Simulated assay, not measured.
Amino acid sequence: MSVFRSRPALRWLVPAAAAVVVIGGGAAAGTIVASADPSLPERSAAQLLVDVQNAKVDGFSGTVVQTADLGLPALPGVTSGAGGAELMKLVAGSNTARVWYAGEDKARVALMGTLGETDVIRNGSDVWLWRSTDSSATHVKLPADKNGADRTPSALPSGLPSTPQEAADAALAAIDPTTAVTTTGAAKVAGRDAYELVLSPRDTASLVGQVRLAIDAEQHVPLGVDVYAKGANDPAVRVAFQQISFTVPDAEQFTFNPPPGTKVTEPSAGDIAKEREKAITPEARKAQQQATEGTKVVGQGWTSVLVAKLPAGDDAKTGPAGEAAGQLDAIVGSLPKTSGAWGSGHLLTSALFSALITDDGRVLVGAVAPEKLYEAAGK
């Protein structure tokens, strides 16, 4: 398995951790331990990058833990309630998942939630989504495209913790002239010897201090990713294996038999397309088009700022869009007011990113201090 090869069946695993890295350019608290031991042959940052790009494994299985502490304030409807509790675990808590991989068409992820378990299983052209909380299962038969390759539906669930591999892919993709790449001491991750590759923003205006990748000394695949805020001693986001085996999992791990009493739904490709079409209303299409037209990026690299427009007009006040707009208004109203030559609005700050919602309907987000957002808002 090449770590940079496209893995559509697992693409939905890219998590909050990877998102934080992209914006910038506990249970697992003791998982990654840097030290002088084990004694590994020296390897340069360039050599480690080549190792990661050329890594190939036939299969693995293990337990992944994602932890986060972004220092977000309490947000109405987001950080409270049952749904909010699960969401908060992505930004101020811990998530655990078990993973199995035996090739591009054999993969399984089991998210171990507080209230139950959610599994996604890919076995050839068969994809199963199973939720223990409501004893439901969805079975999708993937059609083959014109090249004979299976296509995975893009509407698979999100919000699950990333594998270190996916988080590392996102981090490495961010390497450009704005990034300093170095190495540090050896590390132990899930009981395995590893090297540490360190990515640091050259621009000190970034809130990201560094991203550390622990790379397995033998298999050359990422075992853990830590994202540090500037000046912090502890990671704000960590995605790491607690346990891993590079033995190819048994085929039975990818065979799913619904437990008795499970409600099974088997939509056809046409059913999925129809539901997707129904979900995208003309109002939603219009709002999406308006948002795309009004989106731009100010700056580059780790200090770039994304600028977008909020939906406006009557379309943003009715139906599901209206409900979302109402929730957004409640969130924005709870944030501190701020103003300047650029105008006025509300500010959200955390350890790794800042967001500015202006009164004239713009949203500015970046892994930067508020001053950078104000500067971008004035352009």
Rank of each mutant, 00 (worst) to 15 (best):
I357S: 02
V109N: 00
A167L: 08
D169A: 10
G366M: 08
V365W: 00
A273I: 12
G93I: 01
L10Y: 05
V264I: 07
K188L: 12
T163R: 08
S268E: 07
S94C: 06
S135M: 03
T79F: 09
L213I: 15
G81A: 07
A205T: 12
T63M: 01
L111K: 03
V298H: 15
L49I: 00
N233A: 01
R285T: 06
S344G: 02
R202A: 11
G366H: 06
A187P: 06
S2I: 11
S304Q: 14
D329P: 01
V298I: 15
K278V: 12
I244V: 13
D134P: 13
D150I: 05
P153K: 00
V211T: 12
P258T: 04
G301A: 12
T255K: 15
T96F: 06
G209C: 11
A180I: 03
A171M: 01
V239Y: 09
T184F: 11
S80N: 08
T318S: 15
A316C: 14
F256T: 05
V225N: 14
A168Y: 06
S125G: 13
L90K: 15
A34H: 13
Q327K: 09
S245R: 04
S136G: 10
D119E: 10
A214K: 12
Y195Q: 04
D226A: 04
L90V: 07
L72R: 12
S80V: 04
P153D: 06
D359I: 02
G261H: 09
P222W: 04
A194T: 04
N123I: 02
V50P: 02
A29G: 11
E104W: 02
E104S: 08
A68V: 00
